[in-house]
């Protein structure tokens, strides 16, 4: 074993020893840290769920154009050609009145009601997918198309989903900001614990310096201690968020059934979990290094 490795192993051992010698205090600290980190992480997961939900619905057609009931094939072709000629249209799907009736029969259990009617009451329709029309542009298009011959009704769809999607984007920024704020709070927590540990050990530190310890040698166990505490805090945060989202998902089942829309919070992906742990560890180490530096190089 090289001297370098040995020095680090020794420092890690000392830090682990300190944690195991004070299990209650270490656990308490991990919980406090975990809660500080769980808040932004939880918000992020919640927003991620909402965003996934919203973007699933936002990809639905942006405009639905319903034709007059008596529209013939020529009228249909004419409307299709005009729609396809519009600026910014990606795709135009035709939904015949027969297809619409079939779909309605299947999805909503309205078969009997439909059968009771003498005629198919549904019109032919077009679903228009466009690229990133803003709300005002959509509104202008809607009123323009509504004036075309053989067009009965134009609807702007999924507007709410797009609004929600935009709100989720804003929410993400808020979560990031909260992440920075609570990250700083976590930094302060570790900084303070390590500062107290340094005070507790000042005789040993003083002696070590007198007999030839480098600042690095003195600092290292504290940096490891901070890193370990950060890691523990990160783990607690992940567990808290996991537990909370499992609990909320159970409650959301009812919501999903009631609205036929599947909203749920996804588990934190492994990569993100790893990044959270690494980040928390790094945060702890940085806080400890700052605390030790302040004391040792003063």
């Amino acid at each position: 074993m090289t001297g370098w490795l040995r020095a680090h192993a020794r420092a890690l051992g000392a830090a682990l020893g300190r944690i195991f010698r004070h299990p209650a205090a270490s656990l308490l600290e991990a919980i406090v840290l975990g809660m500080a980190l769980a808040l932004p992480l939880g918000l992020y997961v919640a927003i991620d769920g909402v965003h996934a939900f919203a973007s699933r619905h936002a990809s639905a057609p942006e405009l639905s154009v319903y034709l007059a009931l008596g529209a013939d094939q020529r009228a249909i072709d004419a409307v299709r050609a005009r729609l396809e000629g519009l600026d910014g249209v990606d795709r135009v799907d035709f939904i015949s009145r027969q297809d619409a009736a079939k779909a309605l029969r299947k999805s909503a259990g309205l078969a009997e009601a439909l059968d009771a009617l003498p005629d198919n009451p549904l019109p032919d329709a077009f679903a228009i997918h466009g690229g990133g029309w803003g709300a005002s542009r959509l509104e202008r298009l809607r009123s323009e198309i509504a004036l075309w011959p053989q067009v009965a009704l134009v609807q702007v769809d999924a507007g709410w989903a797009r609004t929600l999607e935009a709100a989720a984007k804003l929410g993400r920024a808020v979560a990031a900001l909260l992440g920075v704020m609570f990250g700083l709070a976590a930094l302060a927590i570790v900084f303070n614990t390590v500062r107290l540990q340094l005070l507790d050990r000042r005789d040993e530190i003083e002696l070590s310096r007198l007999i030839g310890a480098t600042p690095g040698f003195i600092c290292r166990p504290f940096v490891y201690l901070g890193a370990l505490q950060g890691l523990l805090g990160g783990a607690v945060a992940l567990l808290l968020v996991l537990a909370a989202s499992a609990w909320l998902n159970a409650a959301l089942v009812d919501f999903s059934i009631a609205y036929g829309a599947h909203l749920s919070f996804r588990a934190v992906p492994w990569g993100v979990a790893g990044a959270i742990l690494a980040g928390a560890g790094l945060l702890g180490a940085t806080a400890a290094r700052l605390a030790a530096g302040r004391q040792l190089w003063a």
Binding site: D203, E204, E206, L207, S208, R209, L210, I211, G212, A213, T214
Partner: peptide, 29 residues
């Protein structure tokens, strides 16, 4: 630090670490 490692210091006030064993005290240098 490297100069100090060439020295052996016996302090007037001992500077022993009372929360460590005798072995650990001697092992520190």
């Amino acid at each position: 630090p490297y100069l100090r490692r060439q020295l052996g210091l016996v302090f007037q006030d001992h500077k022993l670490l009372f929360d460590r064993s005798v072995f650990d005290n001697v092992a520190l240098p």
